[in-house]
Structure formats: C-alpha cells, structure tokens
Write a protein that binds this DNA or RNA. Structure first.
Lengths: 352, 352
DNA sequence: CCGAATATGCTCGAAACGAGCATATATGGA
DNA sequence: TCCATATATGCTCGTTTCGAGCATATTCGG
C-alpha cells in the first residue's frame, strides 16, 4: 500500500528507531552527557555551581556537574541529572529544565578526534545559594567571571570597548572561510554589531549564547585555542576574556544565562532563587543581578503586586537603614491562574 | 589542591566525558534519533510532513521523518537531520531549530522493554508547502488531524466539551498513584482546568504539549494504550482523540506546534511559511492558521507595517474579489535591527 | 451602473508604561 | 533630643500601546 514510499529511504523509520536491537549504523560508544548549570543569587551576585577540574589535564579549569546518562539506572534524563548532581555536589535539585543538546565535533579538549563521541544535554537548575540542600562539594562562582562582558550593573563593561570591539572589527574585515548551512548568513560585521551593541545598536541582554559563540568563532575564547579552532592562533595578543571551562561547559552556561534572563520575564521563576520571605527591594535586586540594568523601584512594586505574584506576610523587616520594609512571600496560587506571568520588565533605554 | 572535591564523585568529570574511550558505564547500544517536525501552511491549513508508517507493525500510523544520528557521517546534529529528511522525503530543509530531547522509557511501541534504548531529539522546521524543494515522498497532513482540540478557528472545538472535559473530570477524581519528582505538583483537576480552559479559565494556545501530555497521562491518547500505560485500559469508552503516531512522534509534533505558536509572536518566523510576495491578508490568514483565533484586520496591518516587518513591492494583486491588495515582501533588514520582532498579537478575549 | 466584497486610512477611549513628586518611618550621630 | 539621611511606599501625570470601530477607496459581477 505504501511501498512506493520507501524508495529512497535507507533505513525505514520503523526499523531504525522502533527496533533498537537492529543497531545497523549506530556508533557503538556514542555517549550522552547530562550537564547541569545550577544558578543561584548570593549577595546580589548571580552564581553558578562549578566543580574544579582535574589539575593534571587542562590547567584546572572549571566544570559543571555532569555525568553520562545510563538508561539502566536513570528512569528519565532529568532523574539522571539529579542523581549526578547529588552525587557530585550533594545538592538536591529543585527546579530544573532542559536547555539544549549539543554535539558539534571538536568542541572538547582532544583535538584531532574528529567525530564527537558524546552528545551533551544541558540543563538549567535554579536554587537558593544559601546553605540549604546540603552542599558537600563544589563552588559557587559568579557567572560574570566567565562572562565579564555580560555585567552591565555598573554601566557598559570596559572590556567590550577595550578588548572585544577592536578585535571583532578586525575579524569582520577578514572574509568568512566556509559558508556552511543553508540559511542566508549575516555578515560578520553585522553579527558583531548586533551581538555586542556596537555603533549605537542597543544591547540585548538575552543574546548571551550568541555573544559567546561569536567570540568562539572569532578565536577569541580560550576554548577556541584549546580546540585548535581555525583562527584562534592568528591572534598575537588574544586577551583574557573570562574564565574558560572544560569541554563545552561555558557554552552550556551561556545558554543557561540566556534562558534565565528570558524566562524570568514571563514565568515566575525568580522565586526559585529567593528565600521564603523577602522584601520587594531584595526581589528587585535579585532580578537586577540576573538582568543587569536598574529598574524603577516604584514601577517594579506596582508590577509585581499588580500581577498578584506576591502577598504580604504581615511582618516587616527592620534594620534596613530606613523605614522597615514589608515582607512578602511568593503567591503560589498564581500558578493556577492562567499562564503565570514573570517579572515583565521592559528593556531600559539603551546606554551604550 | 582540590583533592577534597572528588570525595563522593564516582566518575571524575574529566574521565567520564573528556576521555570517551573510557566508556565505563555507558550503554553500548544507546542510539540517538533525530526527528523532524516540518511545518508549513497550505491553503490556510497548518500542515506537517509525515511519512506513512509500516502497515505491518502498528496499523500504519504516521511517522515524522527521522533517522539515527551517526557521528561518522553527520558533522552536526542538524546536518544529520537534514540528511535524513532529504533522504526520506527529498525535501531540502530551510529554517530549522532544535526543540527538545526526549528519553522517557516506555514511550514507544514495544512495551515490556523497560529501558529506553534511544533518545529522540526533536527539531522544528518551517517551510513553504507549495511544490518547492522537490518533495519526492511523504504527505502534508493538517496538524489538527492529530490535535483536533487545538483548532479554535471556528470557535471552541466540540471535542473538548463532548469527549475530553467529562473524562478529565473523572480522571481528576481518582488520586494520582505516585508523586514522582521533587517539584510541588499541581492537582489533576487544576492541571486539566488550566490546560483545557475549563470552568471559565482562559485558553492558552501555547500549551499544546501540556495538553497532549495530560491526555497521555490520563490514558486517553491512543499511544498510552499502545504503550501499556497505567490507566489507559480503565476507559471502557475511550474516544478517538486525533490520529496517533508511532513512537513519541505526536509528542514531538505537539512540542513543535507549541514552539511555533510561541515563536511567531516574538521572532519573524512567519515569513518562512510565506511565498516571496504576499498580501497582508494572506499573511494574516497564515498567522491565524497557526494561532487559531481571528485577529483585527486593521490592527494587524498597523502592527506589521509599524514594526517594519514588510515593505510593499509596488505591485498589487487583483482578482481578490474586491479592491486589489498591495503586495508586500519580508523586509530582511529587520534582522539587522536589534532583536527582530515577530507578529506580536495579543490573545483575544477568551471565548470559552 | 449598482451592490457586494475586500482593502486601507483614521480616530477614539482604555489600559499599560515610564518617570517623578510626596510622604512615612526607621537609624545614627550632633 | 532632634535632625540628617536612607529606605519604603503611595500617588499622579503624560506618553505609548492596544482594542475596536467608522469611513472611504477600488475592484468585480451582474
């Protein structure tokens, strides 16, 4: 009846996926890595949980908690991730969501090994940084140490004008080698301008991944040199652009930051980062730690209260240096009321 | 220096991922499937490209184009996907983006096989349905055939009140068996209400995946019975709720619809579905095919033109039954101007 | 030549938003 | 004690965005 359909197909779908015992063309040792970007905010500083890498191998760069997915032990991908995090850091993960699955070749520490023997699935987890959850191992490190150009809390970071912009402009002059992909690609100069807000273009705080990928492509990230990327060795004065990480973990962290910044605006996920009770100012400071710029205090209050995201506990927090602040808690009922909103803060006027 | 860190870790990160030849605990035959949900709009009908399944196996249910990822042949996941789609349908994919990676056990046709031997990575591709790109195999089928409850173009679909609502209410009465996961779970009744807009709750057209997962969990999707899901056999009168697909392909398609509906609002992806030249009314009809409800024509024009998404070609399309409509084309320059917007249409007043 | 159908420009009121003024209530030092 | 200072919090006001409708322009089919 539909025999004519299988004309050009090499494996018929039924065979290849529904009968896994027929592993015709599968790589025997294709591994799946589960990687956790665990984010918190500690003292108004956004932090990620990292483990120090093996000093013998790549100079003790950091790694995210991770481990291989083992379908015999792990019921789901996420439960596998939780098990690895528990095992490596003692942390009992709360909120977690899948980010992306990466498998580009050459994106790890062993160049010359052309085919990727693993695929990494990145996850974002949000938690409180304070001593909860029994952390036994690992280190909370500010995510701006890995991405200093993302820290706009004190205005535009100097590193952009000093180290990044001139080199990206130089890189844009050189022609791209291969135009892979079928999508119409955007010119290097335009990409640099849009990503880093050059020449008056507004800064988009959500483009964290695009920016890191651009630096990697331009050979400016340490990982590009490590991977033997084309172009990385052409820089005679490659500056230090944040701390590198092992494998593609900095890329995963960049994806996590992008997602966090986007999601905080349309889903009530900030509260995963907050203690049970907090003042509106503390909430605002947490949002600003994530997003960067400063928000209008009165409007922030109006927004958060107006959306029904919080409710007062009835108590106040004194010793704040002024009038005592009312304490609030997350109003969980919003989750039952239509699509629960986030802290929809509009982008402040671009200050480039 | 950081020896104290490796206390409880079973595999040190460096070993497990960076030295893949040490495949200590890896499943030998863990395969990675690449699945493409290819979406187009044909005659104001949103369609997906499917291939008829093997009639010998599961009753000739449909499958999405897919195949295993082979790192020896495929440079990236996406290029592997493109190769399989090309191979199975002849289609040369344009826009494509990764959706999600699924690996729940039991989500395929062979019950009793507890451990998942494959992981499926779903992709969304957008294209024009018309004869371009040399389609040699496969079938464009309206996505509402798989998800009839999602079609709100002619008001609230009857199937909700007739077949879905009463059964979900009954299901909500029964207690949930196991509360897995560490997140505070929402009660069944609330989930059903929020997902399907029951009891006056507004309909959220982006919750396509949540709705399908709920039906699957409640044992109301054909796939749940096929997989031997708990509860699926308890329905003595399980209604036909859309066409089933093989493996977890309907879940992937649901994810694709969710993503399409969300993304069309904040990125200019509609134009992947349009011919080079089109009238604003045709554009509006395409958006409505995706999102469902009807939009205010004048405001739609104002929005689309005001955002600089289109530019007039100078020509008009006559024989439209009335005054000739100006032809427009996508203004590609918006991609170079800050975050390029989508067709930000606000949800119309809920008509439940 | 008229009625039907679609295209397109414009207006108006409501709601949302950005920014600032004014007031309340703590703390800490003169 | 009392004031300077710092933060908290309520309110206003002009602007922008948004939803909705009116009015006019152009074509086609009888």
């Amino acid at each position: 009846m539909n025999m004519e359909l299988s004309g050009r197909r090499k494996p018929t779908p039924e065979k290849s996926q529904l009968a896994p015992e027929d592993d015709h063309e599968l790589e025997p040792s294709l591994g799946i890595g589960l990687n956790a970007a665990i984010v918190a905010v500690s003292d108004n500083e956004p932090v990620a949980l990292v483990v120090r890498g093996d000093p013998d191998s790549m100079g003790a760069t950091d790694v995210l908690p991770f481990g291989p997915f083992n379908p015999r032990e792990h019921r789901t991908l996420e439960s596998g991730l939780r098990a690895w995090v528990q095992d490596q850091t003692g942390l009992d993960l709360g909120y977690a969501e899948q980010l992306y699955t990466f498998a580009d070749r050459g994106r790890h520490a062993t160049p010359g090994d052309a085919a990727p023997n693993y695929v990494s699935i990145g996850y974002l987890a949000l938690t409180q940084a304070v001593g909860h959850h029994g952390l036994t191992n690992g280190l909370w490190r500010s995510w701006y140490q890995y991405f200093p150009w993302e820290d706009w809390r004190r205005g535009r970071p100097e590193i952009i004008a000093r180290d990044i912009e001139p080199r990206l402009k130089a890189w844009a002059e050189k022609p791209a080698l291969t135009t892979t992909g079928t999508q119409p690609s955007i010119a290097r100069g335009d990409r640099a301008r849009i990503c880093f807000g050059l020449d008056g273009t507004a800064w988009d705080e959500e483009k964290v991944l695009e920016r890191f990928e651009l630096l990697y492509e331009a050979g400016l990230a340490d990982e590009a040199a490590r991977d033997g990327r084309n172009g990385a060795d052409e820089w005679t004065d490659r500056p230090k652009l944040g701390l590198p990480m092992q494998a593609d973990h900095r890329r995963i962290l960049a994806t996590a930051i992008s997602r966090t910044r986007a999601k905080i605006k349309y889903r009530p996920v900030v509260f995963e980062l907050m203690p049970d009770e907090f003042t509106l100012y503390e909430l605002q400071k947490t949002v600003e730690a994530i997003l960067g710029p400063h928000l209008h205090k009165q409007n922030f209050r109006r927004l958060v209260e107006g959306a029904g995201l919080v409710e007062p506990t009835g108590e106040v927090k004194t010793r704040t240096g002024g009038r005592p602040a009312k304490l609030f808690r997350f109003r969980r009922e919003v989750l039952l009321e239509r699509p629960a909103p986030g802290v929809r803060v509009s982008a402040p006027p671009s200050r480039s």
